[in-house]
């Protein structure tokens, strides 16, 4: 199958090794990726969705119509991009007036939006289209003997009616099963469904409280599991959970927080034998231990 890759802002700008991992792994699994030339910000919830419908949905329409012109569905990794595009699409698909207005606004591009293009999350594609069996068969190395914990991206769970793909949003399992497919043992912990806390204004307007909030999650992982790494599938979860551990160590004068964080596709790329320097090189918490285990295995 072929999908239109929507990269958003943070991945290509700050963590392009994740982009590399996605571009490397998906075609190996039969998912070819086309670029969305001339795309714009999703738009992020703190931008146009917070100002008015016109600018919000026009930006959604701009992006959706790029993929629609190619006759392709969109694939996204970033949780916010996924949710913003998918909610924008939902508004447009159920409101003829809004859709007509957006078509008026994007007319100058020569494109037209019919809302045929669907917005899909990379973890959903991996789970539903590729499937754990194919992943297990394709990888050359594995995560045998390693323990992982999962951070599910909120934006792929709620509101389940619009963005969801799990059988039960209260008991998501796609990322767990996908991680187990590579041989890892996935440990559960009490705060598994707690938000990472990284998106939006919270961490900026209440930095101390936000750090404390995420600390409870990391403490639960440390106390309740044997986690060698955290698996995410959202660029915000990745950057936030990775960067905050150093801050916590500095604030508390410890080195207690040192759990490496990987995007799912990064682990997949490592298990497929891609060069760690290309697919998993940008991080705050060192990843060497896990990477060495995989490459040696």
């Amino acid at each position: 199958m072929e999908l239109c890759l929507f990269l958003g802002c943070n991945t290509p700008a700050i963590r392009p090794d994740v982009e590399r991992a996605i571009r490397a792994t998906m075609p190996e699994l039969g998912v070819d990726l086309a670029d969305a030339e001339g795309y714009v910000c999703c738009p992020a919830f703190g931008s146009f969705p917070s100002t008015d419908d016109d600018s919000y949905l026009a930006s959604s329409g701009w992006n959706l119509s790029i993929a629609e012109a190619k006759g392709l569905d969109i694939m996204v990794q970033c949780g916010s991009c996924y949710s913003s595009l998918r909610m924008g699409r939902d508004h447009l698909a159920h409101d003829e007036e809004k859709l007509a207005r957006v078509n008026e606004l994007i007319e100058l591009t020569g494109r037209k939006l019919e809302c045929k293009t669907k917005v899909r999350h990379v973890s959903e594609i991996l789970y539903n289209e590729v499937g754990p069996e194919k992943i297990a068969k394709t990888i050359k190395k594995n995560l045998n003997g390693l323990h992982g914990v999962i951070q599910y991206p909120c934006h792929t769970l709620f509101p389940s009616e619009i963005v969801g793909f799990e059988e039960s949003p209260r008991e998501p399992k796609a990322l767990r099963i996908l991680t187990e497919a590579m041989g890892a043992t996935v440990d559960h912990y009490s705060r598994e469904l707690q938000c990472c806390g990284g998106a939006g204004g919270f961490s900026k307007s209440s930095p101390a409280e936000a750090t404390e909030f995420t600390k409870t999650k990391l403490d639960a992982i440390i106390e309740e599991t044997k986690a060698d790494f955290i698996v995410v599938s959202c660029i915000t979860c990745l950057m936030y959970l990775d960067n905050i551990q150093k801050k916590l160590n500095e604030a508390e004068g410890t080195d207690k927080y040192h759990i490496p964080v990987f995007d799912y596709n990064q682990l997949l790329a490592l298990c497929m034998g891609f060069d760690p320097k290309q697919v998993a090189s940008i991080c705050t918490v060192p990843r060497n231990k896990v990477i060495d285990r995989i490459t040696a295995g």
Binding site: F45, S50, S83, H155, P159, G198, A199, G201
Partner: peptide
């Protein structure tokens, strides 16, 4: 403006 858009409330 502090909302993180997680949509749990939704």
């Amino acid at each position: 403006w502090a909302c993180v858009s997680c949509s749990r409330c939704e």
